[in-house]
Amino acid sequence: MALTDTQLERYARHIVLKEIGGAGQQKLMKARVLVIGAGGLGSPALLYLAAAGVGTIGIVDDDAVSLSNLQRQIIHDTDNIDRPKTESAAEAIARLNPDVKVDLHSVRLTAANALDLISQYDIVADGCDNFATRFLVSDACFLAKKPLVSAAVGPFEGQLSTFKPYAQDDSGEALPTYRCLVPEAPPPGSFPTCETAGIIGALTGVMGSLQALEVIKEISGAGTSLAGKLLIYDALDTRFRTIRLKRDPKNPLNGEGARITDLAHHA
């Protein structure tokens, strides 16, 4: 598709980048991205994906905006308290870039709907806040053969990785899934939530922005994929480090005929 004069101006700073250019921008405009969660991570990710010109953005969230969200969930504002987060986020995206089509999925992701929903998109950005959903999203992305960019945060730390377990690395080995990083969910109550442990709001901005950047890289082909690696950020020490991830031979996804209902049980 040819870019209009308005689009050429809007995306001019992308187009002059040799790593993106007009071809990369067209890929972004044709892409369909599903964002899981319109919260602390999803807020900056959604805004930057919309600003980048992603053609269709799907938002999965069944929650409503609350006052305590606004310390970090910057896509929402005070006037939208008690409204569904999907609707609040869609309005913010429309104000930023009206060319972006937004699909609202105001539902909780389950084993019954995850695979069908994820199959409708090219790539998934997961910013959910619980282990069960992370496993569910990872399994569905594996079965649908969709790349997954997953981010998570603690009070002052964050982590980010891209999962493409249906593909192989340069040595011919299968790339890892989220289950290779976290084999099973911690027992209920053993892992603090942001409600109990707290979280610094700007941290979600850092990690959500990095998440959007990795999605843009995957779509446009710019740079090196984060697949097979885990990025860890320590905000208190202002320190980044990257470690290698390997496919776990005990990963239940290695079995033949794996189904999402079976795999979700392992979470």
Score class of each variant (00 low, 15 high):
residue 147 P to Q: 03
residue 74 I to F: 10
residue 83 R to M: 14
residue 128 C to N: 09
residue 115 L to W: 07
residue 65 V to H: 13
residue 67 L to R: 14
residue 49 L to K: 06
residue 52 A to N: 02
residue 118 I to Q: 02
residue 158 G to E: 14
residue 137 V to I: 01
residue 144 A to F: 06
residue 69 N to K: 05
residue 124 V to P: 02
residue 118 I to K: 03
residue 96 L to Q: 01
residue 68 S to P: 14
residue 141 C to E: 09
residue 112 A to I: 04
residue 47 L to Q: 15
residue 140 A to Q: 00
residue 122 D to L: 02
residue 75 I to K: 03
residue 41 L to H: 11
residue 125 A to R: 05
residue 114 A to V: 06
residue 141 C to N: 12
residue 138 S to T: 11
residue 86 T to E: 03
residue 53 G to W: 05
residue 62 D to C: 14
residue 113 N to C: 04
residue 113 N to M: 03
residue 83 R to I: 13
residue 73 Q to A: 09
residue 80 N to Q: 15
residue 89 A to E: 05
residue 87 E to Y: 12
residue 137 V to E: 01
residue 96 L to Y: 01
residue 143 L to N: 09
residue 104 L to W: 01
residue 146 K to V: 09
residue 136 L to S: 03
residue 89 A to K: 08
residue 131 F to I: 10
residue 130 N to P: 13
residue 156 F to L: 11
residue 140 A to H: 03
residue 60 V to A: 00
residue 127 G to N: 08
residue 72 R to Q: 09
residue 155 P to K: 13
residue 119 S to D: 09
residue 129 D to L: 08
residue 127 G to M: 04
residue 117 L to N: 03
residue 86 T to G: 08
residue 80 N to G: 15
residue 115 L to N: 11
residue 44 P to Y: 07
residue 68 S to L: 15
residue 95 R to A: 11
residue 71 Q to I: 07
residue 76 H to W: 13
residue 139 D to K: 05
residue 127 G to L: 04
residue 81 I to R: 13
residue 67 L to Y: 12
residue 73 Q to T: 08
residue 89 A to Y: 08
residue 142 F to P: 06
residue 66 S to G: 15
residue 144 A to Y: 09
residue 60 V to Q: 00
residue 132 A to G: 12
residue 104 L to K: 09
residue 116 D to I: 01
residue 135 F to M: 09
residue 105 H to N: 11
residue 55 G to T: 02
residue 151 A to T: 11
residue 122 D to Y: 03
residue 133 T to R: 08
residue 60 V to H: 00
residue 93 I to T: 01
residue 43 S to F: 08
residue 48 Y to K: 08
residue 132 A to T: 15
residue 153 V to R: 12
residue 92 A to F: 03
residue 84 P to F: 14
residue 145 K to G: 08
residue 76 H to I: 15
residue 125 A to V: 07
residue 149 V to G: 01
residue 136 L to H: 03
residue 89 A to Q: 10
residue 93 I to C: 02
residue 46 L to G: 04
residue 76 H to R: 14
residue 150 S to Q: 15
residue 45 A to V: 05
residue 73 Q to F: 04
residue 137 V to N: 02
residue 138 S to H: 10
residue 58 G to T: 10
residue 124 V to E: 01
residue 120 Q to M: 00
residue 103 D to G: 04
residue 65 V to F: 13
residue 58 G to R: 07
residue 129 D to C: 11
residue 56 T to H: 12
residue 135 F to D: 06
residue 85 K to M: 07
residue 137 V to L: 05
residue 114 A to G: 13
residue 127 G to Q: 05
residue 130 N to A: 14
residue 88 S to F: 06
residue 122 D to I: 03
residue 116 D to F: 02
residue 45 A to D: 02
residue 76 H to E: 13
residue 111 A to D: 13
residue 126 D to T: 04
residue 47 L to Y: 05
residue 95 R to E: 10
residue 115 L to I: 06
residue 109 L to M: 06
residue 48 Y to L: 10
residue 41 L to F: 12
residue 155 P to H: 14
residue 145 K to V: 06
residue 59 I to F: 04
residue 104 L to I: 08
residue 43 S to V: 10
residue 149 V to T: 05
residue 72 R to I: 09
residue 69 N to Y: 11
residue 73 Q to Y: 02
